[in-house]
Amino acid sequence: MAKMTMVQALNLALQQEMEKDDRVIVLGEDVGVDGGVFRVTDGLIKQFGDQRVLDTPLAESAIVGMSIGMAAYGLRPVCEIQFSGFSYQNFHQIENHAARLRWRSRGRFTVPMVLRTPYGGGVRALEHHSESREAYWAHTPGLKMVIPSGPRNARALLVSAMRDPDPVIFYESKALYRAFREEVPEAEEALPIGEPQRVREGEDLTLISYGAMMRPTLEAAQQLQDTDGIAAEVIDLLTISPLAEKILIQSVKKTGRAVVIHEAPRSFGPAAEIMSRLMEKAFYYLEAPIERVTGYDIVIPLFNREKAYLPNTERILRAARKVLAAS
């Protein structure tokens, strides 16, 4: 096992899958010679050549549209959209085609493609480089939406995404790319899509989050333990859509209290869906209204104010204590 950053772990997933399966094609802007602007595809063009790794012209819509054609032919395209802020240029290809070619062709054509793209704030970036718009994709029928929270699960989920029979939007947190290292086994490892994980056990409160927000969430859980003597259960969604609710409902039936955390804007965000499911299926077990800690319903400000925009441990603690205080 080697200690890897998320960038290295994603690179490993791509490299091993490409070695194993010649249907896997990587394409996107600057993914070849430059190795991707975050270096996730570093070295792939050297190893596999320019028929497996395509440095494309600058056109997101074409990158995704071409991937759809490749996938329908039977290949396994993994395209990179340089920043999720530029994935709206390809939105129509996903919404109109990738997510529904199976449906439209009555199963004759399918689109087993992965769209990898960095998302989220916290890296002092320019405008359009910090947003979290997972709700757009999660709202699209026929699409899977995955957001890993660390090097090891990123690698294992990307492997599954590449093998998935349906299109997967794979959000990679820029803030996590190089934030920390984890042991990542050299041997293949895959994590099923659609299975949230309980990453900390507790009886008093359930904290539900994903992606970059897992770190402040876990930090908050630890502080609740240390300073309040509260045992928080923490669930990492990993797959946003389709949302697997069972583990969430089980947990909330046990704790009776929940806080949902994401950096995406609040209204119509993933937390809204999670809270609805809990209302529908665990209402009689709730001891307090569910709280959410989210980004605000505004464009994420330029980097000097983004810290105040992004949820942090303090905000999560405040919400958790509010939920705990209610009876």
Partner: peptide, 8 residues
């Protein structure tokens, strides 16, 4: 265009 020459 970043690393892509105009010929590509």
């Amino acid at each position: 265009a970043i690393s892509i020459p105009v010929s590509q």
